[in-house]
């Protein structure tokens, strides 16, 4: 179980990396943490002509809060994001999601950017990004573009990143007032990819009614999705509303299947986990409101 022969390029700057992608894009695989790519390379599922290593590119490991957005460089390791006070205070949903990502030994190396670029439908970091309405910053030779997370994930392992683009940063909207963030998931084993994951950002206004609500689901469809919930604004944020929203979500999803779970079960998890996470978030929010 050894990879095919591939060339290796170690970029020292972002410019070098995107120059190489301009040249080799189609045949290059970018390696950051390598937690997913490494396994696919070793199994010969991925057979690139060249592996582009961006781990030594300076400046891609920063976490910066400015103008209502926290920008995390592509190389921010999952463990560092989890320990970072800016993330904890400004992007609590991500902080809640990170302990569910892989294991101690993989979070040490795995990156936020790598998880997003890989686009596993069950991955927690993409779900948090979609739920918060964040964005992905892509750079190619001569241009930089921001793609809203909702448009970035196209399907299983498939994203809007063009072959000549490098994912350089993620943009996380900072926490909103009166908003409670919650995350939970159900996996067969501790640390496995979630069969279903639910991410919530719930704002409850002082009269106890729901303001803005973002409900994201991971592991359910072929990409992280956000459920349309605008119609629920103004309703009393309580357990029965949580149930109604979760039921609605369950009726709308078109679940994927795999060895772990069939479609009915995934839909059921949307129902039950959605209800539980929403209800807990509403309760917290009402208490804080």
């Amino acid at each position: 179980m050894k990879p095919v022969a591939f060339g290796y390029a170690r970029a020292e700057t972002v410019e070098e990396a995107i120059d190489l992608l301009a040249e080799e894009g189609r045949e290059a695989s970018v390696i950051a943490g390598g937690l997913s790519l490494g396994a696919m390379l070793n199994m010969r599922l991925v057979r690139p002509r060249i592996v582009l290593d961006i781990n030594r590119v300076p400046g891609l490991d920063t976490i910066v809060a400015a103008n209502g957005v926290v920008t995390t460089g592509a190389l921010v390791r999952q463990v560092d994001a989890f320990r970072d006070p800016t993330i904890a205070s400004h992007v609590p949903l991500l902080a809640h999601a990170l302990p569910h990502v892989g294991h101690y030994q993989t979070r040490s190396r795995g990156t936020l950017g790598g998880s997003v670029a890989h686009a596993d439908p069950s991955a927690e970091i993409p779900l948090a990004l979609v739920t918060l309405g964040g964005a992905v910053v892509l750079r190619a030779k001569g241009r930089t573009r921001r793609v809203p997370a909702a448009d970035f994930f196209l399907g299983v392992l498939t994203t809007a990143r063009e072959e000549n683009e490098l994912l350089v940063a993620l943009e996380w909207p900072t926490r909103r007032p009166r908003t409670v963030y919650a995350f939970d998931e159900i996996a067969q084993r501790h640390g496995d990819f979630a069969i279903a994951a639910v991410a919530v950002a719930a704002e409850v206004v002082p009269d106890g009614t729901l303001g803005h609500l973002a409900l994201g689901l991971g592991g359910i469809e072929d990409r992280p999705i956000r459920i349309e919930t605008a119609g629920y604004a103004g309703r009393r944020a309580d357990a029965s509303l949580a149930e109604a929203i979760a039921e609605d979500a369950a009726s709308r999803v078109v679940p994927i299947v795999d060895l772990q779970a069939n479609a009915d079960y995934r839909r059921q998890l949307v129902r039950v986990l959605g209800r539980r996470v929403l209800a807990a978030a509403f309760e917290d929010a009402v208490r804080g409101a």
Binding site: Q188, V257, D258, L259, Q260, A261, N262, A263, Y265
Partner: peptide, 22 residues
């Protein structure tokens, strides 16, 4: 006794492995 299977059993449903015909 996976999650999916036990849920099915608990509700008196015949468990169909994911990917099985529906």
């Amino acid at each position: 006794l996976t999650l999916n299977r036990v849920w099915d059993i608990a509700h008196g449903r015949r468990h169909e492995r994911a990917g099985a015909p529906r």
